[in-house]
Design a binder for these strands. Structure first.
Length: 529
RNA sequence: CCCCCCGUAGCACAAUGGAUAGUGCAGGGCUCUUCUAAGGCCUUGAUGUGGGUUCGAUUCCUACCGGGGGGACCA
């Protein structure tokens, strides 16, 4: 990528070992890339930043690198780089040649087998907005890592056994009056609907709430899968069953045996504990209760062990804000089972606003808006773009009243419309004979669009490194803006043949970049709107 | 009481310690005889408060003020 060429130049002319970062200045007049490296060097060299910047800028410029036309120092000590038009023209050729592979990188090794676990909502009812937020994040993060060369598995871990399934069974029984209702049971409409529809099963299994819960959970999981895959276009490679893949395969016992062998457990008050404090947790955690039951935590440790034994070198687990207290212990367990390259990302809550006030939602009480409802209401592309625009640690407000109105004004359409316009140009232009002379692409708007196209690889590489996928939506808007401006000011059809051919090549390059970006974002690339 | 996250314009969100704090929506004004006006151009408007570190702070530290979420031998 072009940014790396600039980076190498700076490193060559700065003292070796200098950490250099490049950014894209807001103001295009300041160049394509900028570095603040002179500020850092100023302390070491005891010279003014501007003096150092001027020296490096001059050295870089005089090195006559094909990547840049010039480097200039700017007060109080920035160095700004202007890419050479020829380098950008060549990048357009590279786009045309690479096609759908443009933007692929190898910043992650193909030997890196990484699992991204996300959503993993208990199948005790429909998905919440928070589940959906994690769903979009995980889906796109997996795409980004795959694009960067890693071997990725997208996993949904299904908690299909244990207390919450038992509770679900009891909730169904309570719904038909077989057992008394109480505070701890699930109350939503979905509970009574399922119970009413399956009266015979409920009655038949009235003595076995766990089995009843399992049956209902199987049905709820089908609904969850439909919402994720059909509605929201979130795909998984594996739905891992806690019961079948972890408990039945002995991973719970294996994890416990492993911990005991490592000497990191102890008995206290009848329970078995794991010394998670040794790994940074604020208290030790119970693995086996005094009643002899394995905890959810032990099963999770078993799950991490299973993941490790299936050959994964790394795992990224995306959890909701209700799992904050869980991060330290799960990281401790990951380390103890030997999956040290483990990362937990927490997505913050989604607040629902209706009528100007926050709506308190509770899955247990059943008074919540489901993810599926929202996706149906605003559309998969708009919902995706909306959720993905926000950094995961940011608390976000979702205004239901404005959701549909907003959906028509969603920035996703701005980006898609640019793509539609590009397709229309190509259709209208038809075939233009001759090899395009790209040096004719010399207006500011040609150049600005070309520069944005060339940034796809760096944007994707950055996201793969720091997981900040919300920057992809920002880039989509920036790219679309560059295209719209180009479209308004410059023409293809009607220009002299040589220029028309060059512009057509630029439009075709734009189509490739839009398609690659949209594919990774999981949004559609419509040819008409 | 302790821990984590957040506080940026009327609203929803951006901003690897850098330059004149960006984007969309909303508001005001222009703009279709040329490839789709879901567009383009111009414009109004913001860093919760007080200290500190720094050449430079929305960003780091600290105290406060707001908001959200955690703190089970539940999941």
């Amino acid at each position: 990528m072009l940014r790396d060429e600039v980076l190498k130049l700076v490193q060559k002319h700065a003292p070796k070992g200098t950490a250099v970062t490049l950014s894209v200045p807001e103001d295009a007049r300041l160049g394509h890339y900028s570095t603040n490296v002179a500020f850092a060097l100023s302390k070491i060299e005891k010279k003014s930043p501007l003096e150092i910047a001027e020296r490096i800028a001059s050295d870089v410029t005089s090195s006559k690198s094909p990547a840049i036309s010039r480097a200039v120092a700017a007060a109080p000590g920035f160095i700004n780089f202007f890419l050479a038009p020829k380098a950008l023209h060549e990048e357009l050729n590279a786009i045309a040649k690479a096609k759908k592979n443009y933007g692929r990188s190898k910043v992650k090794s193909s030997k890196l087998k990484v699992q991204v676990e996300f959503v993993s909502a208990n199948p005790t009812g429909p998905l919440t907005l928070a589940n959906g937020r994690g769903g979009f994040l995980g889906d796109v993060l997996a795409n980004v890592l795959e694009n960067a060369g890693a071997a990725v598995e997208r996993e949904y871990y299904v908690n299909d056994t244990g207390n919450q399934i038992f509770t679900l069974g009891k909730s169904l029984l309570a719904s038909l009056g077989f057992v008394p209702d109480d505070e701890t049971l699930y109350k939503g409409e979905y509970v009574s609907e399922w119970a009413a529809k399956h009266k015979k099963d409920v009655e038949k299994m009235r003595k076995d709430p766990a089995k009843l819960g399992e049956k209902a959970a199987g049905d709820f999981l089908k609904l969850i899968k439909r919402a994720l895959e059909k509605e929201a276009h979130i795909k998984f490679d594996r739905y891992t069953s806690e019961k079948k893949n972890i408990h039945a395969k002995g991973y719970v016992k294996k994890a416990l045996a492993l911990f005991k062998k490592k000497g990191v457990t102890y008995e206290k008050e009848g329970a078995t504990w794991l010394k998670t404090t040794a790994e940074g947790d604020d208290k030790d955690r119970v693995l086996v209760t005094g009643g002899g039951f394995p905890t959810y935590f032990l099963a999770d440790a078993g799950h991490y062990l299973e993941t490790k034994e299936r050959g994964f070198k790394a795992k990224i687990n995306i959890l909701g804000p209700d799992h904050y207290g869980y991060v330290a212990r799960i990281q401790a367990a990951a380390k103890l089972v030997g999956l040290a390259n483990s990362k937990v990302l927490i997505t913050q809550a989604v607040r629902l606003i209706r009528g100007g006030a926050e709506v308190k939602m509770s899955k247990r009480k059943g008074n919540f808006v489901t993810f599926e409802e929202v996706v149906e209401e605003v559309g998969a592309d708009a919902a995706r773009f909306f959720f993905l625009s926000v950094a995961p640690e940011s608390h976000m407000d979702f205004n239901l009243d404005l959701a549909k109105e907003r959906s028509n004004k969603n920035p996703v359409y701005y980006a898609q419309y640019a793509y539609v316009r590009a397709k229309a140009v190509v259709a209208k232009a038809g075939k233009i004979a001759g090899k395009p002379d790209l040096s004719l692409l010399n207006t500011p708007d040609d150049a600005a669009l070309l520069f944005q196209l060339s940034r796809l690889p760096e944007v994707l590489a950055d996201a793969a490194n720091d997981y900040a996928v919300h920057r992809l939506t920002q880039y989509a808007s920036t790219l679309a803006r560059a295209f719209h401006t180009f479209y308004e000011k410059e023409h293809v059809v009607g220009e002299a043949p040589a220029l028309a051919a060059a512009r057509l090549a630029l439009v075709k390059g734009s189509i490739i970049v839009f398609e690659n970006l949209f594919r990774i974002l999981g949004i559609s690339a419509p040819s008409k709107m």
